[in-house]
């Protein structure tokens, strides 16, 4: 029998988008230290169900840190105190007797669906606005028919590790989606396949991001500290540069 923890959870409960919501205190006794944070919530939910209560709604899918579905703000930090996804956070990061505050990602552009689940389709609309490359249909091109310098390939890969979880928005004091947009724009701008459409892409994606009601970056760098994939705010520097260049060219041509 492995070591266990007795915790007090302060969990955000909200019936639906229209409900105001409130914190509910839940006693979490006998939680194994080896459980992941989501497994801890599974245990809590089983107990709630056994008692005939409403289980806590939360998002999850792969549970191996690659899909970006899990969320939660734990003690004020998106995905909790470790720079990883909530599904990869383990209860050994907490001490016996801890009080843990669990909230949804809070942003106007991410409305709460129920309890800890939020609607992140605003990200999908940003992607739909320009997060793609236009290619002709037909047979797949031969491998290596378009050479990509190693440094650019590495850059593109760094940005492409973004799993679109939304922790950057949750962490930003202004609920800005700049790190997400910048990673997507920077990823495609780093590659010869994406470069030709950079100007159109950056304007369309930034305008969609603004229209969705995200805030504006004021250079707090909280996003890169919270990002489970360690995406650097240097991508925002680059997006600012690309945007201002594209907007200038659009204005004068």
């Amino acid at each position: 029998m492995s070591e266990t923890l007795n915790l007090i959870l302060k969990v955000w409960r909200q019936q639906g988008p229209a409900d105001v919501g409130r914190f509910e205190e839940i006693d979490a006794k006998g939680i194994p230290v080896d459980a992941s944070f989501l497994e801890m919530l599974d245990i809590i939910n089983e107990r709630l169900i056994e008692n005939g209560a409403d289980p806590v709604a939360f998002d999850h899918d792969c549970r191996e840190g690659i899909c970006g579905t899990c969320s939660l703000v734990i003690n004020g930090m998106p995905h909790g105190p470790k720079q990883t996804t909530t599904c990869q956070l383990h209860m050994r990061s907490f001490r016996d007797g801890d009080v843990i505050w669990i909230e949804p990602f809070r942003a106007n552009a991410f409305p709460v669906i129920k309890d800890l689940t939020v609607d992140r389709t605003a990200f999908d609309r940003i992607i739909a606005a320009g997060g793609y490359v236009s290619v002709r249909t037909g047979a797949a091109p031969d491998a290596n028919s378009m050479p990509v310098p190693k440094e650019q390939a590495d850059d593109a890969f760094d940005a492409a590790t973004c799993i679109g979880c939304g922790a950057c928005v949750a962490a930003c004091p202004n609920a800005s989606a700049m790190l997400f947009a910048a990673a997507k724009i920077g990823h495609l701008d780093s590659l010869p396949q994406g470069k030709p459409e950079t100007r159109r892409r950056v304007l369309a994606m930034v305008r969609t991001m603004d229209a969705e009601g995200f805030g504006n970056c004021t250079n707090h760098y909280e996003c890169e500290a919270a990002c489970p994939k360690e995406i650097s705010a240097d991508w925002i520097t680059r997006m600012n540069r690309l945007h201002n260049k594209a907007a200038t060219i659009e204005a004068v041509r």
Binding site: G76, M77, R106, N108, P173, A175, S176, G215
Partner: peptide
């Protein structure tokens, strides 16, 4: 900008988990 930023997060978090920003920036 400040007004938009406040509107973008109508409700704050129970605990302040900021890790990198400075008081000057806030």
């Amino acid at each position: 900008l400040t007004r938009q930023n406040r509107a973008a997060r109508p409700r704050g978090y129970a605990l302040d988990g900021c890790q990198r920003t400075t008081s000057a920036a806030r």
